[in-house]
Design a protein around this nucleic acid. Structure first.
Length: 257
DNA sequence: ATGGTGGTTCTACCA
């Protein structure tokens, strides 16, 4: 079972890229972030014409997450529990072929002296609480998405430049570690121990041609899912396309039989 | 790096 995650930075701007990637890779689940549209503006007809179903949690202008699959998508949860006043569409979770899978768009948190940084940390606490509940079910779970977290110095080009950024601050990384320490596995780091393996390159300053990137898109696996992990890769190809998203897909292969 | 690009939306906000 092939599970992929991709922050597309507007699903409508990136529709040809998404359809091309689905056709080339035929994932069993594609987790999308930053749809930047409401549910009614989601390109459902085009996705369905490509043989995929979709569960969508959209919002006007910003955020928005979705789960695509050629299989049935059941027991859909929209929104992360723990704060009824949070209106940002950053979390969707569903079951596909017995696998519980979530598409996550964690808050960026910059600037760190604004209310956005504590919002990020609180949002992360809610995710940790919810992830703990999923573990208790003892089922295969994949928590995938744009975590807006650089887990380690080797996951960015210039750690000193990122030291005080919300994506790399110690308090941010501690939250990520807390999630991992519950018993979740960073699938990419099981399969690849090299540095400079990135999933995001800024549009500015020639970040892509200079390979000045960061690894912030992650697939975290519960023990039942980690036991089935066969492969995990970052596909850099879509980042080189015309009108590319600033993120590129990451995917894992799970042996479910 | 003090935002240089790129998205949504309409003028500023977000990343």
């Amino acid at each position: 079972m092939k599970i992929a995650s991709w922050n597309v930075n507007s699903v409508n701007m990136r529709l040809p890229h998404v359809l091309g990637w689905l056709a080339a890779h035929k994932p069993d689940a594609l987790l999308l972030q930053e749809l930047k549209c409401t549910d009614d503006k989601f390109p459902l007809a085009e996705i369905e014409a490509a043989g995929y179903k979709a569960a969508v949690h959209g919002q006007k202008s910003w955020n928005g997450v979705a789960i695509l699959s050629p299989h049935d998508i059941t027991d859909v949860r929209r929104g992360l529990p723990g704060d009824d006043t949070d209106e940002q569409a950053r979390y969707i979770e569903a079951t596909i072929n017995g696998l519980r899978v979530a598409s996550i768009y964690l808050p960026n948190g910059n600037p760190v002296d604004s209310e956005k940084y504590p919002y990020k940390l609180r949002w992360f606490d809610r995710l940790i609480t919810h992830a703990k509940g999923l573990l208790a079910q003892d089922i295969p779970v994949v928590l995938g998405g744009d975590y807006n977290i650089i887990p380690d110095a080797r996951d960015c080009h210039d750690p000193a430049a990122w030291a005080e950024d919300a994506l790399f601050r110690l308090d941010s990384r501690r939250k990520f570690r807390s999630l991992v320490h519950l018993g979740y596995t960073d699938a990419f780091r099981v399969m690849n121990d090299e540095d400079a393996q990135y999933t995001f390159w800024d549009y500015q300053a020639g970040a892509w041609p200079r390979n000045n990137g960061i690894r912030i898109d992650h697939l975290l696996l519960s023990p039942r899912a980690a036991d089935r992990l066969k492969d995990c890769r970052i596909d850099r190809e879509p980042r080189a396309a015309e009108k590319a998203s600033d993120h590129t897909p990451i995917y894992a292969e799970l042996e479910m039989k």
